[in-house]
Design a protein around this nucleic acid. Sequence first.
DNA 1: AAGTAGATGTTCT
DNA 2: GAACATCTACTTA
Length: 185
Amino acid sequence: MTSADFQGQAPDVARALIGATLLVDGVGGVIVETEAYDASEPAAHTHRGETPRNRAMFGPPGHAYVYRSYGLHWCLNFVCREAGHGAGVLIRALRPTEGLPDMRQRRGQQDERLLCAGPGRVGQALGITLAHYGLPLDRAPFQVLAPAEAGQAPVRSGPRIGISKAQQLPWRFGWADSPYLSRRF
DNA sequence: AAGTAGATGTTCT
DNA sequence: GAACATCTACTTA
């Protein structure tokens, strides 16, 4: 995918990413769950302005925003909209297709369904660290491949997980009934 | 199956 | 200090 694919509103990009393939150093799979975040809405890291942590989300779209969740987990986002806005899409779950032995080793987990079912698990399985912070998504080590037939994945939406603000926004998107979701819809 | 505790870095009050 | 875009291990049933 090209940087133009990330220039839409965060919920539109989040929906369009379901069914796309994400690889980091050749390891990854098909995106089955995402969440949209936007500076205009209080659950977003960017809502209160730019900080050292969220700086990448105020940069150009089509780049990686990586943050440490609960002091423990590395989570990966795709920056979207336009530079300066502070919007992004959290990658919450994949259906593993490439590099399963690497992911099993990194996760210490044999069950394929639990390799990438949650944003912290995706980060660990793909080896995401601060070294990926701000990197463009259209060059190594990243590969983001569009869905085989755009818009054909059976997408469902609902409230985002693990937030206390703006819970009414249905900005979580997922491949309906996939066994690789972090939670059922 | 469901609930709880505990791990811990960054940001905010 | 408290909250937080989370996960695991352990308890209780």
